[in-house]
């Protein structure tokens, strides 16, 4: 019980901007170097040392960018919905800032998944784009990200913008299963799916392990980017507060 209380106390103290700012500044250099190192190692493992695929040749290696970004595009949305809930229920200011910082990163990862998928599709399917169910729902996910960025950047009052974006991400997360289902079903109805993005399940460990490492590396990269953006967001919003002037600017 005591350890639970400790975690709870820590979690609540994270809601205070000065505490969070200090905490981020403490771990930021570590997170950046760790994530860059991880991404560097796992990408070079995947791109140079993993065996060549017998069917797709070296073209398959884009999987080491494509799959991690696709996984992150969905994880970040779930993170945004959770922080959105915290922002709406407890009116936590920091949760709104977190949501705001995560949205553009999520949109970028979604875009990266789409673009790398298109590049991968050209040599393997012979076309940049097919109206496959998964491609379509990823594209729609990107549009929802864009809508979230659009709504908070159009509202001048920061707290209002946070809450509007939080509400939209909550509605988004509950609508996505319906959209995904309907798109899946639309595809299977109109034309049998010629291509699927899913690889053969029997992927050899020499290919699978670098992929896992890449997913991990991308997660850390996301956390480092989130720290960077959150720090900027905190500095922007709290620049007129006393703690910021005294401790950070040294006035």
């Amino acid at each position: 019980m005591t350890s639970f209380n400790k975690v709870k106390d820590w979690f609540i103290s994270m809601g205070s901007p000065p505490f969070l700012y200090k905490w981020i500044m403490k771990y930021l250099p570590f997170m950046i170097s760790l994530s860059l190192l991880l991404v560097f190692i796992s990408l070079s493992w995947g791109l140079f040392f993993a065996p060549t695929d017998y069917k797709q040749g070296d073209a398959y290696r884009i999987i080491y960018i494509h799959v991690p970004s696709a996984i992150l595009s969905q994880s970040i949305f779930i993170l945004m919905a959770i922080t959105g809930g915290i922002c709406l229920i407890w009116r936590a200011k920091v949760a709104g800032m977190l949501l705001r910082s995560a949205a553009p990163i999520g949109a970028s990862f979604t875009l990266m998944a789409l673009i790398s998928g298109a590049i991968w599709g050209k040599p393997t399917w012979g076309t940049w784009w097919v109206w496959d169910a998964r491609l379509t729902s990823t594209l729609i996910l990107f549009f929802i990200y864009a809508a979230i960025v659009g709504i908070y950047s159009s509202i001048e009052d920061k707290t209002k913008g946070d809450r509007a974006a939080a509400l939209l991400s909550l509605v988004g997360v509950s609508m996505i299963p319906i959209i995904k289902k309907s798109v899946d079903w639309w595809q299977t109805l109109h034309q049998p799916s010629t291509f699927t993005l899913t690889q053969a399940p029997s992927m050899s460990p020499e290919m699978y392990l670098p992929l896992l490492a890449n997913v991990l590396g991308f997660y850390f990269l996301f956390i480092a980017l989130l720290f960077l953006r959150l720090r900027t967001e905190l500095a922007l919003r709290e620049q007129r507060k006393n703690w910021f002037k005294q401790n950070i600017l040294g006035d």
Binding site: L168, G172, M175, I178, V183
Partner: peptide, 15 residues
């Protein structure tokens, strides 16, 4: 702006 918000969600209806 409201169109950008609504359009992705209206895809199931359209389909």
């Amino acid at each position: 702006l409201s169109a950008i918000i609504v359009l992705p969600f209206s895809i199931p209806v359209l389909l």
